[in-house]
Simulated scan of single mutants.
Amino acid sequence: GGVVVVLGGTGRNFAAGMSGGVAYVLDEEGDFVRRCNMTDLELQPVPGEDDMLEKLHHHGGDRMHKGMVDVSGDITRDQERLYQLISNHLHYTGSVRAKEILDHWADYRPKFRKVMPREYRRALEDMERMKLAGGESAP
Rank of each mutant, 00 (worst) to 15 (best):
Y92M: 13
L85T: 06
M68W: 06
E128M: 11
A15F: 02
E80H: 01
M127D: 06
K131L: 15
M52G: 00
K55C: 09
L26E: 09
P139W: 01
V22S: 01
D74E: 13
H91Q: 14
E29H: 10
S95G: 11
Y108G: 10
D40Y: 07
D78I: 04
W105P: 02
D62R: 08
K55M: 06
H91K: 15
I101T: 04
D31E: 11
D70N: 15
D70L: 06
G67Y: 03
D50V: 06
G48F: 04
E136D: 10
V3I: 13
D62H: 11
E28F: 00
H59P: 00
G9P: 02
V46T: 07
D74W: 02
R77Y: 04
L26V: 05
T39D: 15
L102A: 02
R63T: 05
K55Q: 10
G61I: 11
Y108S: 05
V5Q: 04
G17R: 13
E28R: 07
A106M: 05
V71L: 12
I75T: 13
R77K: 14
R109Y: 08
M130E: 13
N13D: 12
H57P: 00
G11M: 03
M38L: 15
D78G: 07
V33M: 11
C36Y: 03
L132R: 15
S95R: 02
M130P: 00
T76V: 00
G21E: 11
S72V: 03
R97H: 08
W105G: 01
R35F: 07
D103K: 07
D107T: 01
G48H: 13
R129Y: 06
I75E: 14
H91R: 15
T93I: 10
D27V: 01
G2H: 12
V6D: 06
Q44C: 10
L53E: 02
G61R: 09
T10K: 04
G134R: 06
G9D: 14
V22F: 05
H57E: 15
P139G: 04
V71E: 07
R109P: 00
M64T: 14
I101F: 03
G94H: 12
A123D: 10
T76S: 11
